[in-house]
Design a protein around this nucleic acid. Sequence first.
DNA 1: AATAAAATGAACTGTATGTTCCATTTTCGC
DNA 2: GCGAAAATGGAACATACAGTTCATTTTATT
Lengths: 292, 292
Amino acid sequence: MDDMADTISEALPRDFEALRALILDRRESLPKRIAQVAAYALDNPDEIAFGTAASIATSAGVQPSTLIRFAQHLGYDGFTSLQQVFRERLRERTTSYEERLTVVRGDADEGTSNRRIVDGFLAAASKSLDVMSRNLDDETLDRAIDILHGAETIYILARRRSYPVASYIAYALGKLGVRSQLIESASGLSPEIISFASSRDAVIAISFSPYASATVEEARVLSANNVPVIAITDSAFSPLAQFAKVWFEVAEADFGGFRSLAATMALAMGLTVGVAELRRGRKGKKSASSKG
Amino acid sequence: MDDMADTISEALPRDFEALRALILDRRESLPKRIAQVAAYALDNPDEIAFGTAASIATSAGVQPSTLIRFAQHLGYDGFTSLQQVFRERLRERTTSYEERLTVVRGDADEGTSNRRIVDGFLAAASKSLDVMSRNLDDETLDRAIDILHGAETIYILARRRSYPVASYIAYALGKLGVRSQLIESASGLSPEIISFASSRDAVIAISFSPYASATVEEARVLSANNVPVIAITDSAFSPLAQFAKVWFEVAEADFGGFRSLAATMALAMGLTVGVAELRRGRKGKKSASSKG
DNA sequence: AATAAAATGAACTGTATGTTCCATTTTCGC
DNA sequence: GCGAAAATGGAACATACAGTTCATTTTATT
């Protein structure tokens, strides 16, 4: 049955993704120490890429020889060949914008000055996404979506710089069939509209320093009327953070005095689609069911 | 005068950026072969990070010993210490989103399903920025900004999904002291407002498939009245591309049917600030002067 | 043009590294 | 519970590597 060293024609992985899949696939059947190395490898791919067999073995808590055995178990002829895959991964990783902007061979003038401006905004956006990806708390997100899920109408509060996000949320919610009401600064009807909101509704309030007074005031009123407030803001000292039931701290990078909206947008879309998803599959009401 | 090996107290670079600056700084004064290595190093940092002294020397077309001399010229005590800097660079490079989404230890369940949705939007945004960074043409950008620079009033045309971008442009232009007029779908006044536009003005029209008929129609009318149109759209087949004086092709990645706006936003900000910059320093009218 | 100084090429060397080997322990089948 | 097979630890081994050295060439100085 077992055709060990014979017909290993299953082309052994040359790229990291395939290797990772292979390891996860065989995880169950690996010997204890080998599995220990496998786990370490997937958790510390950079270490494998850069370290020496001895140093890796030490920090993984095994003997160097186990590393070779691990590689051979997977079909590689030694640790070195396996290490190549981990190095390739770093090679192929796309360059970050910050780097692309500075790591140009010539002293400075790469592209026109206009290009440099756009690059600056691209870099700011990229950085913001990065920070968001690291800092976003799963539980906060779940609580926010849970609250929005139960709301009859979702009110959206934002002015000035935050307004584009609000308008996008309103548009997306509309497309997804979720009832929402955008509070615009233009219309003087804000007080009337707000007075309709009840505890069965919910509010998404978006505001960054310097906080638009209208947004803050309206959020305060709504909160006082027991309408749950989800706030997207930039610090714990934000007035919105005080009376929000759930609040997100979003740190947007800026360029030339204009802060990015990329991370806020992504979060907004996540909230929107998250709510819609939950409403669609009403059966699994609270617990977020894992779909495909 | 020259205090060579004596007082090298100028802390030698431990991070790549500083090293790069150091190399560029001394570029002129380096011996031929050393300079050859320096150029190769900045062009192929990944090779330096992973290769052996011998392999690098071969592909750089020098002797291995030259690599050591290069390192020592910069103040490092050997090739290995220099190589550490190149390796650190790869280590610190933030993981891309696509990777972060797939390279998770467990089979699938990293974070909640809501988290996965937000991650999806973050990844889409990141990808969009990446594509934009690669495809944006400097000349197109310069021409667009040049046209907008000469405009008395900038009209902004966008509906539905593109509307948030338009509202952000309007906000930013306002803050920067550039006269602009946002054409909203809500107000039935569009035709009247549009009729005021002349060839001394300009239009930014934003529309993606399926193109909002109002945007297309209004852009057509304006173009017919000799108002120059800058279009931001998604393909050469877009109706906007036909009568636009300058048009940008923006490929936004999507997640769950909702396309990102990150790249469009960055471009929009670039246009906005680019125009404002140009207007501020009116002296250097056409050629983009290098400031600071 | 002659001399000194710097730079370069190429072989050599000590060391650090991956790998192999074998004794010991653990796991599994009967 | 016994025996076989697999897995593991640890030391010995071979080699591939960075770094050194020295002869040669190139560049600068007088």
